[in-house]
Design a protein around this nucleic acid. Sequence first.
DNA 1: TCTCATATACTAATAACTTAGTACTGCTGA
DNA 2: TCAGCAGTACTAAGTTATTAGTATATGAGA
Lengths: 124, 124
Amino acid sequence: MRPSSVTLTPQELELMKIVWHKGEATVRDVYETLLERRKIAYTTVMTMMRVLEKKGHVKTRRESRAFVYRPTRPERQVVRSMVREFIDRVFNGSAQPLLVHLVEDRRLSPQELEELERLIREAE
Amino acid sequence: MRPSSVTLTPQELELMKIVWHKGEATVRDVYETLLERRKIAYTTVMTMMRVLEKKGHVKTRRESRAFVYRPTRPERQVVRSMVREFIDRVFNGSAQPLLVHLVEDRRLSPQELEELERLIREAE
DNA sequence: TCTCATATACTAATAACTTAGTACTGCTGA
DNA sequence: TCAGCAGTACTAAGTTATTAGTATATGAGA
């Protein structure tokens, strides 16, 4: 059984970030974290957690009455897939134009540029 | 009237790339370019071109019988918005983690790394 | 034990995306 | 002139995403 697509929709990603951050979480945990940011119904979170499970992004175990959800894949791995998918889609698979955009768009502080330079020298 | 969102769906982007590349294009132009890659109906392309127009991504002018579509915004500008949106969504607005991903993921050739180093030095 | 809070199960509605079919129109060449 | 082709207009259907309501189950405290 092939692992389902690793790409997450925007809302799915928002929930997954919470689960990754907490390590594992119940619907209530996620619900309460989300509530700090925006109005959302408990059952909405539940539905989405179930979707995430159906898609294989989380696994559950029962703990007394509630389900505890934990990620099936580490955040780094999923984010990496999303970056790849984005580069394929927008830049036809070539990462370089993206970097040019980033550097030119001045989205990086001098510190970040320096840090990046160091990384490049290590990779070379 | 606020300009509608600049973000494109995957299919919309695919069509827009063709229009950008050609400068301007009719439904037939786009249809034939797409056909080289995959099976698609002429009317499907038409519907999508109309969607792109409704969303403000292209403008049309009538040329004899057919509509000619041309982009309302240059590719660079739209791509830049998409990069920003992606960084906001996936990396909470910080570009640096994305770069670390790219460099570590070895998606760049030595030449590209060098080129990038030069860009950084210019930006600093 | 019985009630209430909390949890899940089931259902559903709306919107956006993607794809495409059918009907209609109007040039254009025979 | 008129048939046919190339084009648009209108319609629609399937899928996924997003949000949430109602019904039901269950455990814990009074």
